[in-house]
Every structure is written in C-alpha cells, then in structure tokens.
Design a protein around this nucleic acid. Structure first.
Lengths: 161, 161
DNA sequence: AGTGAAATGACCATAAT
DNA sequence: ATTATGGTCATTTCACT
C-alpha cells in the first residue's frame, strides 16, 4: 500500500546537486549552482523539487559526539519474546522516548533489533541497558557491542551517474 | 596525543542552537535566531564558533535511500585475522573506497568491524559481500544482518541542559 | 533582472569576574 | 579592566519571482 509515488528519473544536474548537498548541506544556492554548473534559478528549482519529492528528506547538522561528552558509543543487539499483537507500536514509542538512542532498526535473523546508542560514560550506559532497555515489556535479551573507533564516519549514499 | 583542545562550556544559547540545527540543518540564520531567542548577529557568531570548535562538524542533506534505488540496507559483521602491522591503514583505505559503505566501526569483542551498507538489490549485495569484502586481505569472516524496517530513523545526539 | 530578505561585520551595551 | 555575552545598524549578498 505505501507506494513510491512517482519516480521521476534524476537528471545529471539532480545527481550533482545531491552529491553536493549530501556533503555540504548548508551551502548557499548560489555556491551550489556554481559547483554543479547551473544558473542560480534552475538550481534552486531543482533542489526544491528534490525536497518536494522527498528525495531530499531533510538537513541535519552533524555534531561531535565526544565534544558533547558522550564517551560511549555502542550498538545494542536485542532479542524479543514472542508477544501479543500491538507490541510493536508500544515498543517503538518507548524506544523513541530514549534520548540516547541514535537509531533503531528491526532486523532479519537472530537479532530482532539493532540499536545505535550513546552514553556519557559506562555508568550511564549500564543504567540505560539494564534498567531501561532490558525492563521493556517484550525484551528478552540485550547484548552490547562497543565502538572502539569510527573507521568510516557516517557518510552519504552513493549517487550513481 | 590528539587532545581535546579546549572545552569551552556551552551556553544555554549554544545548546538551543545545536538542538535546532541538528534537526533543521538548512534553517536560515534569521529563523534560527528567532527560534532560539537571539538577534541574528550573535546567533550567527555562536553558530560559527560552534563550527570553528568542531562541535558542529558539518551539515548533510538526508536522502531517501529507497527513492535512490537502494532496496537493501544491511549491517555486516566482520571478523579479522591476526595480521601484520599496517593492516589497519590499508583496510581503512579499501573500505572507504567502497561507495556502498555508509559507515564502518571498529568494535570491541567478538566482532571486529561493523559495516553499515546499502545495495541496489540482493545480487549487488551478494557481489559486494562475497567478491569484494570477503576477499580483502585480513578479513576472516563476514556475516550479514538485513534491515527490515527503521524503527527510529537516524537522529541527533541528546543536548542536555 | 529586480525586490525584499538574509548574511555578515563594525560597533555599542551590559554584566559578571 | 577584562571577558563574555547580546544588541543595533549599515552594507553586501542571496533567495525568489
């Protein structure tokens, strides 16, 4: 039922625009136009169209995790119990309410959920994991894997030609 | 040895700015100033300072993965072999060269690397995983976990008061 | 191309140290 | 007094029609 509205094919200009704004989200339209080799006016129209179509879903500042005091970054692997219908909605709400959750994915296979998390320190992480995650209704087990270093920092999707 | 230069404490205004730009990275300075209750000029000065200090590391447009034709999103768990010094640098280079890698983390514990990946379809994913990842020198084993749905879409860090 | 809005920098005010 | 904050205004640049 959720249908991909209309997949207008991307023009080469669109692709160039996407490549740039994915890396420099706050670039001015004037500078963007120059980079992609368009005049300002058509460049802005294309960017707006990409936003309109949801291809550009939004813009975010990327903040420095450590500078903000989050020493711990981890991925938490969650197994769920077989449970009543409706668990999903409630669980999503509860998870989204945890500020330390950066992202959460429902997965195929052994692990049911993969949760990307930050915490100020190990104590805070332990409190989150033990007292808040594990006690959620439907959660059977949690296992945590800690990030030692970021080899490839989060970056954009490839934009094929 | 890379030391956190100077941790200027964040003012309440800084925090408000960070909360906003993390969600609306392309907001105009004028609108940002209004939202955080500052005049345009000091607001811009603070934002620039936050960028200067690396607290704001950059800005990115968030693109729609499916709209761009990536049906597959997965996390690949990699185990490495004991290997010669210098493996790390070479491996990082090789990994970064793969466009389908959205992020890659060195992890503590059983799994050595966690790689966030997209692919157009299963064929493309298989080709990447089998022919390109697994054949990298030093890679002992890869296991893939596929994303079924995104429960909490990637969002910003919590900014405490 | 033109008009209104935004960005940017020079300068001032106030308060806390 | 110095430092750190915010404000006002004038000029340049940009967004958008």
């Amino acid at each position: 039922m959720p249908e991909d509205s209309d997949k207008r094919p991307l023009t080469p200009s669109d692709r160039r625009i996407l490549r740039v704004v994915q890396e420099e989200g706050r670039i001015t339209n004037a500078a963007l136009a120059e980079k992609v080799g368009l005049a300002a006016s058509p460049c802005l129209r294309r960017l707006k169209a990409l936003e309109e179509d949801g291809i550009v879903a939004g813009y975010r500042a990327v903040l420095d995790r450590k500078a903000l005091g989050y020493a711990i970054e981890a991925f938490v692997l969650v197994k769920l119990e077989q449970s009543e219908p409706g668990w999903r909605t409630r669980l999503i709400e509860r998870l989204n309410a945890f500020e330390e959750v950066l992202a959460c994915y429902a997965m195929a296979g052994e692990i049911d959920l993969l949760i990307h998390v930050v915490a100020q320190d190990m104590d805070a992480f332990g409190e989150f994991s033990m007292n808040r995650l594990l006690t959620l209704p439907g959660v059977a087990d949690v296992r945590s894997s800690f990030v030692l270093s970021t080899i490839t920092p989060p970056r954009g999707l490839p934009i094929p030609d």
